[in-house]
Every structure is written in C-alpha cells, then in structure tokens.
C-alpha cells in the first residue's frame, strides 16, 4: 500500500510517502508557516521523489488536529480533495498522536502538547502498550496549570514533547515528574503519521471530513454563552 502523509497542523510542515514498511520520501520543515504556499509543491516533490504518480497512491493520511485552524484547513482541504478526486482512502490521525510516537521506549507517560495561547495547551497523554503508543486520556484543550496538576497525581514520570518549549520549557522543568524531550523528539514526523495511518480505519465520508479544532469559533462560543444567559 502506497501511503501519502500530510501534516500542516502546526508550525512544523511534513510530507512523507511510504510503501508497506519502507519510507520512500520524507520532508519536514520547522520555520516559516506559509503552508498554503509550500505544502502542495512539497507534496508534489515527495510523491515524485518516491517514484510515484498521484494515481498510484492508495491512501492519504492527514494530521487532523488539534492545531492552527488555518494550517489544519490547508492540509485537510488538500488531503480530502485528492482522496475524493482520485478515489483513494482517507485517514485522519490526531496531530498529538503523531508527536507521541517519538516517545516510544520511554518508561512512563508521553505528553505531547501544542501551545493554544491564553495559558492553554492542546494536550494529549499516551503510553506504550504492546509496542504501540495508545491514548491514556482523550486529546483536550486545557489550561496548562490544570493539566500539570492532573499529571502530578499520576504514578509515573511524564515525557513532555513539544515544539513550544520556548514558552513552556522553564515552567515544566520545575516539575519533579517532568522530563523534556530532545529537539529531534519534539517534531511530528510525517513518516510516523504514515505508519500509524496505514493501520487505521479510513473515514467513511470523505466529503464531510473536518479538522478536529477542539475549540469553537470565538463568535460561536460568545453566541452560545449569550443564549444560555
């Protein structure tokens, strides 16, 4: 099975092509965020580098969120459009689950997170079972303070993986149970996305496949609050 994996959910942009157990091509950048300009050329380049034509892909796997709303829409629009028009399978994978793969082998919990502003983070908690990283709790949007308090109650050390240690590294280092990931562990790898996406169930309705925003649009939240008043 030829798999194309796309991740533009955060600052890191990644594209990979795999065939069964083999990674054929992989590209990852962690600088500018103009994903709308760079993603399609990168995708075309990786498919070509893998020696394939678009029609020869069997499955498209996309990081479905959480993450930047705009970034998610770019990746998901491209993934679902290609899956629909080329009649290929489409699979969505949690953006946090992709990062969690880098914690394989860690004795304890793996806690990937993305900064979500206003003291909040998009956070997940994973642990290794039978060689696989499985979620301990569902991905969530949470105040970092509350998240740390929750994790402190657990019995094992926690490996934090994040591209946002500039902002949160210092705070996390002060927690006794926390271990911080290395630079190479903190970035989601698109080849890992392809690997886990290859084993998941494809979405049943490509048309209405949507990003997992984990947060309402601000206007919607305000409107709902007003109704409840």
């Amino acid at each position: 099975m030829n798999v194309l994996a796309i991740d533009s959910s955060n600052l890191v942009m990644g594209v990979a092509v795999t065939e069964e157990q083999k990674v054929l091509s992989e590209l990852i950048t962690n600088n500018k965020k103009n994903h709308s300009e760079r993603l399609m050329p990168a995708l075309a380049q990786m498919v070509q580098a893998a020696g394939l034509k678009p029609s020869e892909l069997d499955r498209i796997v996309v990081a479905e969120g959480p993450g930047s709303y705009t970034g998610l829409r770019i990746g998901i629009t491209i993934a679902k459009t290609m899956a629909w028009t080329l009649k290929k399978e489409l699979v969505g994978v949690s953006s946090l689950e992709v990062v969690a793969q880098n914690g394989r082998g860690f004795e304890g919990y793996v806690a990937p997170f993305f900064d979500a502003r206003r003291g909040q983070v998009f956070a997940g908690l994973y642990e290794q079972k039978d060689g696989k990283m499985v979620p301990t709790v569902p991905d969530r949007l949470v105040l970092m303070e509350n998240w740390l308090a929750e994790l402190a109650k657990r019995d094992r050390p926690v490996l934090f993986l994040s591209n946002d240690f500039d902002k949160w590294g210092e705070k996390l280092s002060s927690e006794a149970f926390a271990v911080l990931g290395d630079s190479t562990q903190n970035l989601p790898r698109p080849a890992e996305l392809a690997r886990i996406g290859a084993t998941k169930e494809p979405v049943s309705n490509v048309h209405h496949f949507l990003p997992v925003y984990l947060r309402l649009a601000e206007a919607e939240a305000k409107w709902l609050a007003k109704q409840g008043r």
Partner: peptide, 8 residues
C-alpha cells in the same frame, strides 16, 4: 470552517 465541509 463551512468551506472545508462543502468544497468537495
């Protein structure tokens, strides 16, 4: 958000 839902 609606455009993503309707585009294809």
């Amino acid at each position: 958000r609606h455009h993503v839902d309707q585009i294809t």
